[in-house]
Write a protein that binds this DNA or RNA. Structure first.
Length: 401
RNA sequence: GUGGGCGUAGCUCAGCUGGUAGAGCUCCGGGUUGUGGUCCCGGCGGUCGCGGGUUCGAAUCCCGUCGCUCACCCCA
């Protein structure tokens, strides 16, 4: 035997048992989203690298160290898509969807790629279901999207918490960042070393520190939520009241951070305890500047993405794999008859299988039992029987049974 | 990139302080059976991740390496 080849690190085979679970998740997502007027869109698995470096943000972890980029042979750099929002916006612009009645409501479902170290709930190739709404800054869109993701997770049986925040607009956020960094520097001697080293890089992370003295400092730190301008504050208040109307519990978490640069205003994340260190099942936010950033007209947008693998973990989705056949055709020395009968049964709309494993007659009967075949035909030298009794027209008998 | 745990049949694992491998499940066959779910018997299946070292002898000890996994960073 030659050396074995395993699936690349961080990738996985979706075996029949898992494909049934995932199909459940996918069906639920489609049903829910299509009922709300979202139409499916699929974009290529790879895009121009620039789409992500520009759209997601040059300084983000995704762009700096997690992209699978390659030269296409003609000097162009392509990248396996690490996320779905920028590609959807690209398609929106490319196909002139801003001329469609606003807003444009889209969803997608497919594989994404990030070159990270794998761990529980985190893979290098993973699947996401995502929804995006382009062309409306109505707070009801924010609320609708959150409700849809909530309902999806709830329907599948996941126990989740909703964390909610507002990131304001780019100007407010930049000003706040300065204010926070200044505050951290002023209290530098009280901060843990890691937090201190990140003051300029990512000051918001200081809120997540588990260092006690740092926590004491952060308790009094300025919060972005309190710095929203009147427009952003009003938008946020509207979103909140709509969520309350929908009866969806949430927690305001002003420390919510997302690793993508394009977010503005509403930001949210659903978390589950069933995922190990990767608590996020799905999340998203508003990105009012993104479409313009990648060359389109100024267009408000908002969306979310949820990991299929994480949903399966969080919801402990279980599904039965095999659908029992209506008819199993066992045979001994009558392959052609069995073949013809099986095809006829399928043509008549039955789920039919015939013996293909070279088993003994006894083995065939055991097998038919094991897969819970509803009816059993036996074709051998003694004749043709259905469920133990001599039979003429097996297909018709099974159909009328 | 860094750290912890683990790598023995397709799967789950046993194998004490070293003497060149076992069980259960699965699968296939036989027996029993109302030609089929139980039960009984048998069979297929492993270069003990890989490479060195110690030893008369290593799955078992030592070193290295690769892989898996969990965690850090970050995220779906």
């Amino acid at each position: 035997m030659s050396a074995k080849i395993a699936a690349p690190r961080g990738t996985f085979d979706i075996l029949p048992e898992q494909s049934a679970q995932r199909a459940l998740v996918e069906h639920a997502a489609r049903e829910l989203l299509e009922a709300a007027g979202y139409a499916r869109i699929e974009t290529p698995a790879f895009e121009a690298t620039e789409l992500f470096s520009r759209g997601v943000g040059e300084a983000t972890d995704i762009v700096q160290k997690e992209m699978y980029s390659f030269d296409d042979g003609g000097g162009r750099s392509l990248t396996l898509r690490p996320e779905g929002t920028a590609p959807v916006c690209r398609a929106y612009v490319e196909h002139g969807m801003h001329k469609l009645p606003a807003p444009v409501k889209l969803y997608y479902l497919g594989p994404f790629f990030r070159a990270e170290r794998p761990q529980k709930g985190r893979y290098r190739e993973f699947w996401q279901v995502g929804a995006e709404v382009l062309g409306s800054d109505d707070p009801a869109v924010d609320a609708e999207l959150i409700v849809l993701l909530h309902d999806l997770l709830k329907r599948l049986g996941a126990t989740v918490r909703l964390r909610l925040s507002s990131l304001a607009n780019a100007q407010t956020r930049a000003a706040y960042r300065e204010e926070l960094a200044a505050y951290l520097r002023a209290n530098e001697h009280e901060l843990s070393e890691t937090v201190r080293s990140r003051i300029d890089l990512n000051p918001l992370r200081a809120f997540d520190s588990d260092d006690l003295r740092t926590q004491a400092v952060m308790a009094k730190a300025p919060r972005l939520i309190d710095r929203l301008d009147s427009e952003d504050a009003k938008h946020f208040a509207e979103v909140r009241s709509l969520l309350e109307l929908a009866g969806i519990p949430y927690e305001i978490d002003s420390t919510l951070v997302r690793g993508l640069d394009y977010y503005t205003r509403t930001l949210f994340e659903f978390t589950s305890d069933a995922l190990g260190a990767q608590s996020g099942v799905g999340g998203g936010g508003r990105y009012d500047g993104l479409v313009e950033l990648i060359g389109g007209p100024p267009t408000p947008g908002i969306g979310w993405a949820a990991g299929i693998e994480r949903i399966v973990l969080a919801a402990q989705v279980s599904a039965t794999r095999d659908v029992p056949p209506d008819l199993y055709v066992a045979h001994e020395g009558r392959r052609a008859d069995a073949f013809t009968l099986t095809l006829a049964a399928r043509t008549a709309g039955l789920r039919a299988q015939m013996e293909l494993g070279g088993r003994s007659l006894k083995g065939q009967l055991k097998h038919a039992e094991r897969i819970s075949a509803r009816h059993l035909a036996i074709l051998d030298a003694q004749g043709t029987r259905l469920d133990g009794k001599p039979a003429e027209d097996i297909v018709r008998q099974v159909l009328s049974a």
